[in-house]
């Protein structure tokens, strides 16, 4: 699979603080990747490095094949960056703001007016096109910067806390846009604290802490790794004790208890084990009422993996 983003032994220090230690990471093209971690973990530093806003002390990284150190201009053309904290040109009107960045990214002059119209419409700011940025609310500014990030149609989007400061409606709209972008084949890297929304958006995640990547992969892979031996409960019509003997025969199942007609056991490995057990029980004539397994959501995974220690 083609890598959109690749880092190797990436390191960044600020004075005496090590923001990123030695980060190895690969994000396949087309993924929507959630970057999760406590404050000061190094998420913003990683995004800034990928956006070539800062320079690494050691190691290398590529964005769509462009090395951020040796080919920064190429890397900038291939990435759209939305920082977490920023200020805007207060006296500039919204459409001029987008036109300026279109010119700066080398978009052809003929296509700029149409492009600006489309992006303003996409982020629901058409009515504010002639308004000074100083007149826009926080959410409107956030959407304007998001539109700026898309102005040169980059294959990679680096979004640092894109949902913060947005009201629920604007947040839902932004998530919808991000979904559309995912469908269009763009690689999106999102750093966010709002984990419930990340889980709805992302196809893969990475949990970063103290400048180190603790765990990375698709959500299922990470969930599996985080869960370890997950608890499974199977409820039968009757004969639970006999059914427990069958389950004990599977290597990946570790019996915990039989409570009434419910069997509780730990499942090692992926969820296909549950299907195998279910099949064996049905073939042996047991009547299964329900199966439930402990399914970790993104917050559970994060709390399990992260120790919440800030450097």
């Amino acid at each position: 699979m083609r890598c959109a983003i690749k880092t190797e032994k990436l390191r960044k220090e600020y004075d005496s603080v090590v923001a990123l230690k030695s980060l190895d990471m690969e994000i396949p093209a087309g993924e929507t990747y959630g970057l999760i971690g406590p404050n000061g973990a190094g998420k913003s530093t990683l995004l800034k490095l990928l956006a070539t806003a800062i320079k690494p002390d050691f190691g290398f990284a590529t964005v769509e094949g462009a090395n951020i150190e040796t080919q920064p201009i190429e890397a900038r053309k291939k990435a759209g960056f939305m920082p977490d904290f920023y200020a805007l040109y207060e006296q500039v009107v919204a459409e001029d703001f987008l036109t300026y960045f279109a010119l700066a990214y080398g978009v052809s002059r003929e296509s700029i007016p149409g492009l600006v119209d489309k992006l303003l419409a996409d982020v629901n700011l058409t009515e504010k096109r002639k308004a000074n940025i100083s007149e826009l609310s926080r959410g409107m500014r956030q959407r304007l910067v998001f539109a700026k990030t898309l102005i040169h149609d980059p294959p990679v989007l680096l979004l640092d806390e894109p949902l913060s400061g947005l009201d629920p409606k604007a947040r839902a709209e932004m998530i919808e846009i991000l979904r559309l972008l995912r469908k269009s084949g763009k690689t999106v890297v999102i750093s966010s604290h709002i984990l419930s929304e990340l889980s709805a958006l992302c196809t893969s995640i990475g949990i970063i802490e103290k400048g180190e990547m603790k765990i990375t992969g698709t959500i299922d892979e990470v969930r599996q790794a985080a869960r370890g031996a997950g608890k499974v409960e199977i409820e039968l019509i009757s004969n639970a004790a006999q059914a427990a003997n069958i389950i004990s025969g599977f290597e990946f199942a570790e019996m915990r208890a039989v409570v009434g007609n419910t069997i509780v056991f730990d499942l090692n490995g992926d969820r296909s084990g549950i299907a195998l057990i279910n099949e064996a029980l049905v073939q042996s004539g047991f009547r299964v009422v329900s199966i439930s397994d402990e399914r970790l959501n993104l917050e559970d995974i994060y709390f399990k993996v992260s120790s919440h220690e800030v450097q």
Partner: peptide
């Protein structure tokens, strides 16, 4: 605003 300037080509 410098962060925007320096990430343009």
């Amino acid at each position: 605003t410098w962060v925007f300037q320096k990430t343009t080509p």
